[in-house]
């Protein structure tokens, strides 16, 4: 078991691209954990990942990997799976292996080819001939073959069939099960995170709304739905991500703010899924999000921020 240092610690990252501002992006991922990084397109997920990897420079903040400040030496211990592979499209998978063999210090050729077999990838195919799902599998095979301690993945499961996604989820669970490894991955498919993630970090418009355990997040919110006309203004003010269609609505409410007596008869409530939470908070703009329904925990844990939205 690795010492109690965090596999990844991000503190106060900031970056501006034109109109887009990222500020005070902070979270911490411990060994043995899988952290899902969620948020809508353009929220800053890929930029955050690129900053962690040193591909993009933050304008402020710090990144610690394995308890050490960011440096080219420590970044080599990360397994990376990006939206599309960085390998030349003209390379056959055997050439990818040949390239990796010379650039990773702890490269395991046998493990790589075993993964290719497991994934049903033909080693004589060229990278450019692979489908999106296959190219993700190729990157995962490479990432798991050089003794990486931390796996960072950007949307690894989008475009992949449910069975393969399930397999990838199991693989990640196996990867962290010894407590010496950790996984950080961004995704739109929150159902994957329901199954595999231990922690969630939620980013919206370049700011972290929540970072902490998945279990804590899921117990904080309820989904309410019913006839829109019957909802009082008082109740409406406590709802997040109000969505109305054909006279009916659905929205999120903090469990502690939910007063069943206030709920009209036509309304029902049920525990919110991760998808409900992400969709509702993404829908809600900063102005319309009621402070009482803020995702930020009132009692901040080391891995939980408390920005008042």
């Amino acid at each position: 078991m690795v010492e109690a240092t965090a596999a990844l610690k991000v503190q106060g990252l900031a970056k501006t691209y034109g109109q887009f501002h990222m500020q005070d992006v902070s979270f911490e991922l411990n060994f043995g954990r899988i952290m899902g990084f969620v948020g809508r397109n353009g929220a800053g997920k890929t930029t955050t990942i690129k900053m962690i990897l040193g591909i993009v420079f933050p304008q402020a903040g710090s990144i610690e990997l394995f308890g050490k400040p960011y440096s080219p030496d420590v970044v080599g211990k990360i397994g990376v799976v990006m939206d599309s592979p960085y390998y030349s499209g003209e390379w056959k998978l055997t050439e990818v292996e040949s390239a990796c063999k010379h650039v990773y210090d702890n490269w395991d050729s046998a493990a790589f080819y075993a993964r290719l077999n497991e994934f049903g990838l033909d080693k004589n195919k060229k990278v450019k001939e692979l489908s999106r799902g296959m190219s993700v599998k190729l990157q995962i095979a490479a990432a798991l073959s050089h003794d990486a301690q931390l796996l960072i993945m950007d949307e690894p499961t989008s475009g992949i069939d449910p069975l393969a996604r399930d397999d990838i989820g199991e693989m990640l669970e196996d990867f962290v099960s010894d407590g010496n490894h950790a996984v950080f991955y961004s995704t739109h498919i929150t159902t994957d995170l329901e199954k595999t993630a231990d922690d969630i970090t939620f980013i919206r418009d370049g700011e972290i709304l929540y970072t902490g355990t998945k279990a804590e997040l899921l117990t904080k919110y309820m989904t309410v739905e019913g006839e829109a006309a019957q909802v009082s203004e008082q109740l409406k003010a406590q709802l997040v991500g109000w969505h109305e269609h054909a006279g009916r609505f659905d929205a999120l409410i903090a469990r502690e703010a939910l007063d069943y007596q206030q709920l009209p008869d036509s309304c029902t409530s049920h525990p919110a899924s991760l998808d409900d939470i992400v969709v509702s908070f993404s829908r809600a703009t900063r102005k319309t999000t009621a402070p009482t329904a803020s995702l930020a925990a009132s009692s901040a844990t080391p891995s939980t921020l408390s920005p008042e939205k």
Binding site: K50, L53, G54, I55, P72, D73, V74, V75, G76, I78, V80, M82, S84, P85, Y86, Y87, S88, G89, E90, V103, Y104
Partner: peptide, 18 residues
Amino acid sequence: LYGEKTNMNAWYVTLGIS
């Protein structure tokens, strides 16, 4: 040419190559 096509430069950075 290929570095730009597939963003290989980013890969170099993730390999710890300065």
